[in-house]
C-alpha cells in the first residue's frame, strides 16, 4: 500500500492550481455576490505560487511534511487576505500529522480532517457558519468512513469527492456568520459560499490524484 508522499502532494497542488486558475473568474464572481470579489484571485495566485515553489524544490529529497510546510509559507506570503492564514494553518496541521508517521493513501480523510482542524483553529468558525470548513469536514469524514469500510483508494476518492460536492451545495442554505458575508445576514442565503466552492475544487483535486494514482 503506498503512502502519502511528496510526489502525491505535489501532484495534488499541481492539479488544484490548474483548476483554481480555470475557476478564477467564477470564484471572484461568487465572492462578489456576498463578499468582496477577491477570492478567485487569492486562491488562484496562491496555489500558482505554491506550484512554482514546489517545481523548484528537489522533490525526492523533501519529506511530505516539508512539502506542506513550504506550501504554507509560500501561500501565506503570496496572498495574505483571509484565506492566507487559514490555508497556511491547514497545511501546517497537515504537516504535523505527516511528521507523526507515514499515512496510507486510503487514510487521506485523516489528512483532510487535520487540515480542517487547522482552518477551524485559525478562523474560529463553527460548522454551519457558511465557511470552507462546512466542506472540508464532511469530505474528510466521508473519506474516513469509506476507508473504515475497507474501500479501495478509488472508492475513498469517490466518497471524498461526492461529499465535498454535496457539502458545497449545502452552504447555499446557510447564513454567513463569519467573514465579510456575515454583514449581509439573511441576504447571504441562496448563495454558494465562495470559500466552500474553492474547498470543493481542492478536495476534488485530492480525490482525483488519489484515484489516478491507484
Amino acid at each position: 500500500m503506498s503512502s502519502i508522499d511528496s510526489a502525491f502532494l505535489i501532484a495534488v497542488f499541481r492539479r488544484a492550481a490548474d483548476r483554481l486558475e480555470a475557476e478564477r473568474q467564477a470564484l471572484c464572481a461568487l465572492d462578489g455576490e456576498i463578499g468582496d470579489g477577491d477570492h478567485g484571485t487569492s486562491m488562484a495566485n496562491g496555489f500558482a505560487a505554491i506550484n512554482d515553489h514546489l517545481r523548484g524544490m528537489a522533490r525526492q529529497e523533501a519529506t511530505p511534511a516539508a512539502v506542506l510546510r513550504d506550501a504554507a509559507s509560500t501561500f501565506l506570503a503570496e496572498v495574505g487576505a483571509t484565506v492566507g492564514p487559514l490555508y497556511a494553518t491547514a497545511f501546517l496541521h497537515g504537516a504535523r500529522l505527516l511528521e507523526a508517521g507515514d499515512l496510507d493513501r486510503q487514510q487521506i480523510g485523516r489528512l483532510v480532517v487535520a487540515m480542517a482542524d487547522g482552518i477551524k483553529a485559525r478562523g474560529q468558525a463553527e460548522l454551519g457558519d457558511k465557511t470552507m470548513i462546512d466542506v472540508w469536514y464532511p469530505a474528510g469524514h466521508a473519506a474516513i468512513a469509506a476507508a473504515a469500510e475497507g474501500g479501495s483508494p478509488a472508492e475513498v476518492a469517490r466518497a471524498l469527492r461526492m461529499a465535498a460536492e454535496q457539502a458545497r451545495e449545502t452552504t447555499v442554505t446557510m447564513i454567513a456568520a463569519r467573514g465579510r458575508a456575515s454583514r449581509l445576514k439573511e441576504r447571504s442565503l441562496g448563495h454558494l459560499d465562495p470559500g466552500g466552492a474553492s474547498a470543493a475544487i481542492i478536495l476534488a483535486a485530492i480525490a482525483d490524484t488519489l484515484a489516478s494514482a491507484a
Binding site: 478564477r24 471572484c28 464572481a29 462578489g32 463578499g35 468582496d36 470579489g37 477577491d38 478567485g40 484571485t41
Partner: peptide, 25 residues
C-alpha cells in the same frame, strides 16, 4: 475588480445600497 473588470454585484437602476463598506461588498 481589475481581475474581472465587471461589477462585483448589481444595484438596480433605481436603487442604492445603504451602509456599504469600502470593499465593494
Amino acid at each position: 475588480m481589475p481581475d474581472t473588470q465587471r461589477p462585483s454585484f448589481k444595484i438596480g437602476e433605481d436603487d442604492m445600497e445603504f451602509g456599504v463598506g469600502v470593499h465593494g461588498e
